[in-house]
Design a protein around this nucleic acid. Structure first.
Length: 311
DNA sequence: CTCCAGGTTCCGG
DNA sequence: CCGGAACATGGA
């Protein structure tokens, strides 16, 4: 719906054009980093923090309405040297396949709070569910903005959600995550945790502080460190990445979590977070079909080994 | 109907 | 440190 003639949209001013090499807008916005961008014509509408905007990519050029060049370049990390980053990755077949599959994907620099909040709602949820929850929360408590003719919403401040009731949050489909989001919003708005101050802290300390927030464990902390703080060595291990590590790099489903963590930190290097996101996007899009078959007698409960329904 | 999803927390070996 | 169980919801 909402397909209207071009004349009804705000096109009196020409779009800002930004050259962007080694960049893929669609993959970047649909790889499970941010959850609020909506398809609008041949581009995406959404907010970069408080700034409503519409962005499309045609070849090596970004067409932007509503946001300035600096905001766009920072958010999409166009300053990252992607060829240099990918050159630092290990050269195994799985990594090479993911690199080719997702080439041009950038690690975003998202606003701290909205990234943290989105990932608190992410546990045991599919990406589509996380997006649905994000939109519900934004439309309920955020501020309405116009992005080149599309209505978009900012993410509500911590103080706003801190003043909401757990019942109202649960009504957004949050389930048991409602209490986590509410109590974390309270910790932020009360000042017990200062998200901005963590930018200056060593990654270990920042991770430890993030993990002190209710509903935030190591995985979500690493997602926030990577997708908001742009700590490119942060390596979130979710169910998909765990499968990749076990099946590709260990060849058996036995390595304990601590072993996976230390392996990832040493094997993927200072840009491990980028490598992780390429691997994640590839394995998720192929629903595990890109993984090697399980080692000999491994259980059939893995993705590729899932028994098909009989009849 | 069953299975699973970008996990965290709590609890006993 | 490790593995298990509980925790809600909705789509495939």
């Amino acid at each position: 719906m909402n397909r209207r003639p071009a004349a009804s949209r705000n096109r009196r001013t020409s779009a800002l054009e930004i050259p962007a090499q080694h960049f893929d807008l669609r993959i970047t916005l649909e790889s499970g980093q941010a959850f609020h961008w909506i398809l609008a014509d041949d581009g995406y509408a959404g907010c970069i923090g408080d700034v409503p905007c519409w962005i499309a990519q045609r070849g090596g050029t970004l067409h932007v309405r509503g946001a300035g060049e600096a905001v766009v370049r920072t958010y999409f990390a166009l300053d990252d040297d992607l060829p240099a980053i990918s050159a630092s990755w290990p050269t195994d077949p799985a990594m090479a396949a993911a690199c080719e599959f997702a080439w041009g994907m950038r690690i975003l620099r998202q606003p701290l709070w909205e990234c943290l909040a989105a990932f608190i709602t992410s546990s045991l949820k599919q990406v589509a569910h996380i997006s649905a929850i994000s939109h519900t929360i934004r439309s309920r408590w955020g501020e309405s903005r116009d992005a080149a003719g599309r209505t978009v919403f900012s993410y509500p401040e911590p103080s706003v959600l801190a003043a909401a009731s757990e019942t109202d949050l649960r009504a957004c489909g949050l389930g048991f995550r409602a209490k986590y989001l509410l109590n974390t919003a309270r910790d932020i708005s009360s000042g017990r945790v200062d998200l901005e101050a963590l930018r200056e802290r060593p990654i270990r300390e920042a991770r430890e502080t993030l993990c002190s927030l209710p509903g935030v464990g190591e995985k979500i902390a690493n997602c926030v460190l990577l997708f908001a703080y742009h700590r490119l060595e942060a390596f979130p291990i979710d169910v998909w990445i765990e499968r990749v590590l076990q099946r590709v790099y260990f060849r058996r489903r036995k390595a304990p979590p601590a072993r996976l963590r230390s392996f990832a930190a040493h094997h993927f290097g200072p840009y491990g977070g980028y490598a992780q996101q390429y691997l994640f996007h590839h394995v998720r899009c192929t629903r595990g079909a890109c993984l090697p078959p399980p080692a000999k007698g491994a259980s059939a409960k893995g993705v590729a080994g899932r028994a098909q329904k009989i009849r």
